[in-house]
């Protein structure tokens, strides 16, 4: 009863609980929160106290003293640390309702990876309820991504979406508001960063942090040979000498570093196309594949997939926020039609 009363003063939220970033979309207000899924925890007399969440906590990643740990509570698209995820969600929900006098109790729609197990789904549901949600609904990420990208998901027409997130890459073929085929590979932006760290260690004998690797990926990273050459100066700790050293990396080197990870994504896309029903395959061949998620921002990834699949590949508008925006639209749709868009 009290929750319902508090609910009257709360907004409906669509949450993209991603491995790298968490986004919250509110109807009529758009994306109201976009922060890294990072929590910094201070250990004090055996107790765990949340020190910082989001952007502040990300700044602490790899730079923390012994009594503070900055962690990412989600790994490969699913919850790795239940309690910390709950705390993080609680913080974000409160942040969205900063002006409210009451403790918020919103209805929440959370996006989950399409092949997540019942246990993983339950973990997400319960952490959202624990964070103060009044009602929790789940939607598969690629479906939300497709809706957010503006694909005609309700038509009898096949649409293929590839959502490259931080932890996973979700591939789905959608028709008539349902997922016809879906696959999830545990390859994403984080794997790109790891691959860059390993490459630098192997070829330059230096160690760089994840944040530096991410910066390298964003500035000079590319997925296709023949792209414009770019260079970046990087500083890392030299393993042999033990002192910080500076060196220059270029696009070709990063392409080489990312080769294996990219091959994983290409393979998954090809296998999705192989398994799609012929009618839907012909629809996809006509219109093309749509890329969403932060990974879609990797330079010339669309060109690589075009060349490998022989199909037109386009990047959605504002690919980072597609899932959260799509979740918001899906919530309206579910309210109107009283149906659930979770196929499994």
């Amino acid at each position: 009863m009290l929750k319902r009363l508090r609910g009257a003063f709360s907004n409906d939220l669509s949450i993209d609980l991603g491995t790298a970033n968490t986004l919250i979309y509110v109807r009529d207000r758009g994306i109201v929160l976009d922060e890294p899924s990072v929590v910094a925890i201070r250990h004090h007399n055996g107790q765990k106290i949340v020190e910082a969440v989001g952007v502040e906590a990300k700044r602490m990643l790899g730079r923390t003293p012994g009594n503070i740990t900055a962690i990412r509570p989600l790994k490969d698209g699913v919850i790795a640390d239940f309690q910390v995820t709950e705390k993080m969600l609680q913080h974000f929900i409160k942040k969205v309702h900063e002006n409210s006098w009451f403790q918020p109790s919103p209805r929440v729609l959370v996006c989950v990876p399409c092949l997540s197990t019942e246990v993983e789904k339950r973990a997400i549901r319960e952490s959202a309820l624990g964070a103060g949600a009044r009602e929790v609904r789940l939607i598969e990420e690629p479906m939300a991504a497709a809706i957010g990208a503006g694909l005609p998901v309700d038509e009898a027409n096949g649409s293929m979406v590839v959502d490259i997130g931080g932890g996973t890459t979700e591939i789905a073929i959608i028709s008539l508001n349902g997922v016809v085929y879906s696959d999830s590979v545990r390859v994403g932006g984080d794997r790109f960063d790891e691959a860059i760290v390993n490459y630098v260690r192997r070829n330059y004998g230096s160690v760089i942090g994840d944040a530096t690797a991410e910066r390298i990926k964003q500035e000079v990273g590319c997925a296709f040979a023949g792209s414009e050459m770019r260079e970046i100066d990087v500083r890392g700790r030299n393993l042999a000498e033990g002192v910080p050293r500076s060196f220059t990396l270029n696009s070709d080197e990063i392409l080489e570093a990312l080769q294996e990870t990219l091959a994983g994504i290409v393979q998954a896309v090809k296998s999705a196309l192989e398994q799609s029903p012929p009618e839907l395959a012909s629809d996809i061949a006509e219109s093309g594949i749509v890329l969403t998620g932060g990974g879609a921002l990797l330079r010339d990834l669309d060109r690589l997939l075009t060349q490998e699949t022989g199909l037109p590949v386009i990047v959605a508008d504002d690919p980072l926020t597609c899932v959260a925006r799509g979740g918001g639209k899906a919530m309206e749709f579910m309210d109107k039609r009283n149906i659930d868009l979770l196929s499994s």
């Binding site: 503006g150 219109s287 093309g288 037109p312 959605a316």
Partner: peptide
């Protein structure tokens, strides 16, 4: 063309 999303995508590509 197949739809707004694709028009924008084609123009961008």
């Amino acid at each position: 063309l197949p739809g707004e999303t694709f028009v924008r995508g084609y123009i961008r590509a």
